[in-house]
Amino acid sequence: MNDVDSKLISGVLGGSQSAFQQLVEKHQRLVYHIVCKMVPEAEHEDICQDVFLKVYRNLSGFQQQSKLSTWIGRIAYNTSLNYLEKKKVVLYDDIAGDGQSVDSVAAVQSSPEERTLVSDIGARVRQEIDNLPVKYGTILALYHLEDMKYDEIGTIMQLPAGTVKSYLFRARKMLKDKLLLKYNIEDICL
């Protein structure tokens, strides 16, 4: 664990409010990246706050051999999971995501009006990323936005590193296939 995190932890455990504020500032981006992939927008701020309250309450039990960021990430992931379970949201539509037939994807093909609406290629891809199943979206965010390694993502999501890798590849393939079905190939590979 790095020195900055060690100092922050001892500051927080010593009762420093400003140390905790710095800890939140340092890790709020990671927490947001996880929460925003799993929880509806209206709940983002509340869930993020909930995550940091849990971090505060459990910090004395944190094993400093691991990275603080992955520990906080895990709390964020579990808190979001609990929220979804309470709301009875179907999370792991692995089958729906992975095994989704071409027909079902084709059924949601966009109309010509929609195509003109989502004119920007980046926006189209972004929209499809947001529509990915929760688990795939989270892995994609942690890998590409947080530059995390497979084992770090695995620690957060309680998955083996190999599974994380295969889910990541699957997510990107799913994304590519959906986009190819919805839009012209020429549009996508510009």
Partner: peptide
């Protein structure tokens, strides 16, 4: 292209004083 878009930073839609508020709640 997918990788490039997926790596673009997204805006963090939390209140500007999020960290201050959480620290205040905790204390």
């Amino acid at each position: 292209l997918l990788t490039r878009v997926a790596s673009q930073p997204i805006s963090i839609n939390l209140s500007p004083d999020f960290a201050t508020c959480v620290a205040a709640v905790v204390s």
